[in-house]
Design a protein around this nucleic acid. Structure first.
Lengths: 154, 154
DNA sequence: TATTGTTATACTCTATAACTATA
DNA sequence: TATAGTTATAGAGTATAACAATA
């Protein structure tokens, strides 16, 4: 059962990774780089919009964040008041609203992502190129296979 | 900048992994295998005790879970009422309490871990042995380097 | 009648502060 | 006086239900 041993080693590592992410103030430190008083879910909205590269409807933001709609609505209020996003009526459907980043909002999201990216660069910069490539490949595959398996359970 | 490209690919994967973990009801599904009405933090207490392999003090459980003390105290109440843990006075220090799993508690934690482990087995069982080994090695290294870097920031 | 979004409310998880008992 | 744990309170994040407006 050498298989079993491999997996029993991986599982605690994944749990540890989750702990490191959630509790080590990685997020808080990167948010400090943003230089604006945005809370965590608000920042997630900004990142979602920046990664989309285009204005999104409220429901679409909620879907991409995998949260319920009202949660997005609530934080859009704060973001709009801070002039980080704009809400405009969707010309194709008067019921819907398109949310777009202001320049300030786009800059904030960019600074956050840049900080996190620079941080990961530091973590693996002493790795060999082979190891970096292999890690990227295997991690991508793992996440994809995991997601497939989850969807199969439904 | 081939480095940059590698990292920019890894970062979204990690974010995606976090999302999959937190929102895909992986935890809820595994908890269903437990067959007992234990909530999530309560289950974390049971897992912590099982992985320790010995009774732990309340403060030690909180440290391993990386949460504040009162959080553990609160859930120990429910767990004790459900007969999943026992609290006994530490013979070495009358102030402290040792928390130990009952047979039912140990079984519950075991069933949960077995479900998750079996699930991961399914995800990577079609991988080559080389890929599995490499993934385990690189993931472990990544988490360790990440933690080191975080500690350096303090 | 179905869908988009909002408002109002409630629940889960975790933190901080104040307190008790033992050292 | 310091430490282990508990009780009480507060906050962040997210969900559900009820509602409004448009399709």
């Amino acid at each position: 059962m050498s298989e079993g041993l491999d997996l029993e080693a991986v599982l605690p590592q994944l749990m540890r990774l989750g702990t490191v992410f959630n509790r080590s103030q990685l997020v808080e430190r990167a948010m400090a780089q943003v230089g604006l008083p945005v809370d965590r879910p608000g920042l997630t909205v900004l990142i979602t919009l920046r990664m989309a590269g285009q204005p999104l409807r409220v429901g679409e933001i909620a879907a991409r964040m995998q949260v319920a709609g009202p949660h997005v609505t609530r934080h859009l209020h704060d973001l709009e008041r801070a002039d980080l996003v704009r809400r405009v009526v969707d010309p194709d459907d008067q019921r819907a609203r398109l949310v777009e980043l202001t320049d300030a909002g786009d800059g904030a999201a960019g600074r956050y992502l840049g900080a996190v990216l620079g941080w990961f660069t530091g973590v693996v910069e002493e790795w060999s190129e082979e190891d970096r490539d292999a890690f990227g490949r295997l991690l991508g595959r793992f996440v994809a296979d995991l997601q497939t398996r989850i969807e199969e359970l439904d």
